[in-house]
Nucleic acid binder design. Structure first.
Lengths: 319, 319
DNA sequence: CTGTTAGCGCTTTCAC
DNA sequence: GTGAAAGCGCTAACAG
């Protein structure tokens, strides 16, 4: 263990090559003869050489962090379990790349926010969530090629399949008057679940019962109340968010409605505590960590920008 | 909007001073006459100058990211809601500093891991969680002065007060045979709750009933089972974690034990969904986001290293 | 395939 | 108080 950390120059000297050559083999780019490659690698090993990430990034002109920009109108969106999970997953996934992650909310009207992001030379890439269809196609030029999205058009969960499976299960269990607590209409990812729901409901020749939610449990409470008032004979409530479903569960319990006997309930996402709720929530489970990591890597150009991840139904007590 | 971003040299030229002077006023350090300060500021404003964070960090020799190192023996600790919340909070709090955060687990035996951290020149600071008493006092020298802790000895929640308030409430409600699901014994932060519990139990002249947990809901399930078996007349179970309390709740429900009629239950932390559980969990609420942000700023030397945050009991349905 | 020569953009001694 | 100059540690043209 040396007191002074070894630099590239030390490695090069020891290997008997120029710094440029050492750089080429150590950074993996550029040609190098087998001989010098071996010499450099050996020298680096002996000296315990660790490249200086900041110097490297400055020379390359690439940034050192990824910002996770969450587009939403609620100020507390950054406390949302999905957001915190995704953030942590990225922070863990990018650690080996020597890249840190920052979390920031941007408003629904976010042109200026995106310009800010594009102007920040410290940024390696940005991961965007909460976008609508239009947003991805009109990113500032400085962000093109180094932006990835979580949700529709990016690393996404196959929500159509997941919600479809849940609804099919409800129908198979004899439920017919199924209501849906959907996502906000400005969000691109809200569409597919509504589409499957509509399709299946039409196929069953039943009228659709859709209420808009926002992924919070508060909204789940009010939505359930609205559904109970408006369509008292509802026998199942599907939500596109577990938090919302837990809110629904609460309202139903307070109203003396038995779950699942009177009304079945399903969530979406399988947050860590969905199974710990009582009655345990039936929902669809998603590899949120993988999705977030995929988006982060995609933003860095290390993975495909578009990927669909499975949504697997998990049936517990509520449906 | 210029195509080429303005650099320090541009600002200096426009202000009619040397780059050195411009640097002094813009970076806030070093002397500068009122006149040149004004000129530089004006020029910077007109040019829309934004310092290059990476170049700045390289020149200063400081790193560009903070790693949140969570010490635990469970591989899935990084999925823990507390960890994800804290990570996200830091990622949001450090965004304005142009510093990203990375998340990494380190083992209980973590000397080597800490050396790795100390050797990484890309790191601005590290935030440590899951430490025991000894760890903080024997950090590698390269980490001293740029490490902060979450939990005992760092930015901590006043768990003694919080658990004390919860237990006092239980006693006031007539509970007497109270069991505690504590934290793991290797963790420094596990001690205070056990201490208050022991003290209050002794004062009530009752025997202590302590089971060790690990903050998971799985452990809550097994702990509840153990308590029911060993001390069947238990009339209250206090946990130092909400996830654990939810596990307790599940086991009690499965065993046909009514909550809170037969057994009262309390948690700790007030995770976002504690209130959405049914019956809604009584617990103590903590400013986790503030705690994490304080630790992160402390690590960067921007805040006091030690701070105690309030633990406020919130009584819902289970106690 | 390799070495030389410039930078990347900012900070910081060190004289003046 | 200010400027000139020397880096921070590495990468990337460009010749050879």
């Amino acid at each position: 263990m040396r007191e002074i950390r070894a630099g590239l120059a030390d490695v090069a000297r020891r290997a008997g090559v120029s710094p440029a050559t050492a750089s080429r083999v150590l950074s993996g780019s550029g040609p190098a003869s087998a001989a010098s490659r071996a010499a450099v690698l050996a020298a680096a090993g002996q000296l315990g050489y660790q490249p200086h990430p900041v110097a490297r990034r400055l020379a390359r002109g690439t940034g050192t962090r990824v910002v996770f920009a969450v587009r939403d109108d609620r100020a507390d969106i950054l406390l949302d379990p999905f957001v915190t999970r995704a953030t942590a997953a990225m922070a863990a996934a990018l650690d080996p790349y020597d890249i840190g992650v920052s979390l920031r909310r941007i408003g629904l009207e976010c042109a200026a926010d995106l310009e800010d992001l594009a102007a920040d030379r410290g940024l390696a890439a940005v991961v965007l969530a909460g976008h609508d269809r239009a947003l991805l196609s009109c990113l500032p030029s400085g962000l093109r090629g180094r932006t990835a999205a979580i949700g529709a058009g990016g690393a996404d969960v196959d929500s159509a399949a997941g919600v479809g499976a849940l609804l099919t299960h409800l129908y198979a269990a004899g439920r017919r008057r199924i209501a849906l607590v959907a996502g906000p209409s400005w969000l691109a990812s809200s569409a597919p679940p509504v589409a499957v729901y509509t399709e299946l409901t039409r196929a069953a020749e039943m009228p659709t019962r859709v209420v808009r939610g926002d992924f919070t449990s508060d909204k789940g409470r009010t939505a359930a109340r609205a559904i109970l008032d408006r369509w008292p004979d509802t026998d199942a409530i599907a939500s596109v968010s577990d938090a919302t479903a837990l809110g629904v569960l609460q309202t139903l319990a307070d109203a003396g409605v038995r779950v699942p006997d009177d009304v079945a309930v399903t969530g979406f996402d399988d947050i860590p505590l969905a199974g710990a709720a009582h009655p345990a929530l039936s929902t669809a489970t998603h590899p949120v960590e993988q999705i977030a990591a995929a988006a982060a890597r995609a933003a860095l150009g290390e993975a495909a920008p578009i990927a669909l991840f499975p949504s697997t139904p998990v049936f517990r007590a509520t449906a």
